[in-house]
């Protein structure tokens, strides 16, 4: 509301000015179109031409060359950036190929190393197995010998026990027996 009253106040002010202007123009009616008040034409045309020349000067001498050069610079920057990006992309592809190659050779090398290590281990393993086998067979031979001795020992003991038992049995039966005869008989029997 305040706004409208204000503008009306301004209306009043321009009204007054209008009236004054009309009075100056020989009392022409105020309601006409100010656009058709030809007495103001020279003034408008003069100042318009001044303004147009000023704008033309500002634009043609300063603004347009400046904007044109900025746009050209930007276009150049974009073009060179795209070229650089293209180059970098090419380099990246190259790098990727090199990387793939390096990776493949590394894989081959590692496979080789693994195979060599496996072979080495196999050799060592075989050696160890052979050594172990020899030891086992030696131990087994020793054990066999010991068992043989124990067996022989046992047989001897059995013979001695049998001889003494037979002698005792014979004497228990009230017979006197020749020790040598008994032994001979027992030995013969055991061999049976």
């Amino acid at each position: 509301m305040a706004d409208t009253t204000e503008s009306h106040g301004a209306d009043g002010a321009t009204d007054a000015a209008h009236g004054a202007a009309d009075a100056a123009h020989g009392g022409a009616e105020a309601v006409g179109m100010p656009q058709l008040d030809f007495s103001t034409f020279p003034n408008q045309i003069f100042w318009l031409i001044v303004a147009l020349i000023a704008i033309y000067m500002i634009l043609n001498k300063v603004a347009l060359p400046r904007i044109a050069s900025v746009l050209a610079d930007r276009q150049g920057a974009i073009t060179s950036d795209i070229a650089a990006a293209e180059e970098l992309k090419l380099k990246a592809v190259e790098a990727e190929a090199a990387y793939e190659k390096a990776l493949a050779s590394a894989r081959a090398e590692s496979a080789e190393i693994i195979a060599a290590a496996r072979q080495e281990i196999q050799v060592e393993l075989d050696e160890a197995i052979a050594k172990a086998d020899a030891e086992i067979s030696e131990r087994a031979a020793q054990s066999e010998k010991a068992i043989g001795e124990i067996q022989a020992g046992a047989m001897e003991s059995v013979e001695a026990v049998a001889k003494s038992t037979a002698g005792e049995i014979v004497s228990a039966l009230g017979l006197s027996a020749d020790r040598a005869a008994v032994d001979g008989a027992v030995a013969a029997r055991l061999k049976g």
């Binding site: 000015a17 100010p34 007495s39």
Partner: peptide, 25 residues
């Protein structure tokens, strides 16, 4: 007064609008 806004008036007093007068235009 819808047309009052289009009136050409001198800015620094006076009522005559000569070709060189400094106006609201």
């Amino acid at each position: 007064h819808p047309m009052d806004q289009f009136i050409v008036t001198p800015l620094f007093g006076g009522t005559e609008v000569h070709w060189y007068t400094i106006t609201n235009v």
